[in-house]
Design a protein around this nucleic acid. Structure first.
Lengths: 98, 98
DNA sequence: GACTCATATAGATGTTTGTCAATATGTTTT
DNA sequence: AAAACATATTGACAAACATCTATATGAGTC
């Protein structure tokens, strides 16, 4: 995963609503209407957020009839985790402050 | 670390220049002028980016004479890593797609 | 004290972004 | 077929943002 992919993911996670969506999805697949219930946003806004989350690869959409089921993409998430761990690894070598 | 802190960090990392700065700092403390050399941006712009990185807690500034030395804040970074790992953990329990 | 260097702040500007209302698409139900 | 439901798209708009120029602050040097 290159730096541009990471930046894209971070930009996606940089919105509180989207971060909350990710947290909800970490508990398992959810359909759009279930997600919508938890927010004070309109349906088009949720749709917009889901598009951004899908485009950066964090979320996958599964169409089933009129429903869209969203779930985390474990591979992307894991690659992202590895990137963050890489940064932390340097700290353990004493290269960071604190 | 609560969700708002994480969102703030992600917003900071969501800019390619700032992400690159973080990567450079993961190799050890650097002063502002050294960082500036690596980018095609003006000094005020770098200063702005450093402020954002400091405000979210990812970076610490150490003043020494006329120089500012910047380094990663290992604690914040580690807390952030833990948050991301938490999301991944759910995936390992089979709650994610892919 | 004047000059240079490193950094910060202020103000301006064009771009991106989060949001909404309106509408479209496609599916299920009656 | 019509109505209801879930989602996506379009267009508009205000707020946030990245960037610049100009200027200020403050430290070292001549």
């Amino acid at each position: 995963m290159n730096a541009m992919d990471v930046a894209l993911i971070c930009r996606a996670l940089g919105d509180s609503n989207r971060l909350q969506i990710i947290q909800m999805l970490s508990d398992g697949e959810k359909c759009g209407c279930k997600l919508l219930e938890q927010f004070e946003i309109t349906q088009p806004t949720l749709s917009h957020h889901m598009k951004i989350l899908c485009e950066c690869g964090l979320v996958e959409a599964r169409k089933e009839g009129k429903w869209s089921h969203y779930s985390l993409n474990g591979e992307t998430l894991d690659a992202f985790r590895q990137f963050v761990e890489g940064l932390c690894g340097s700290c353990r070598e004493g290269k960071c402050g604190g």
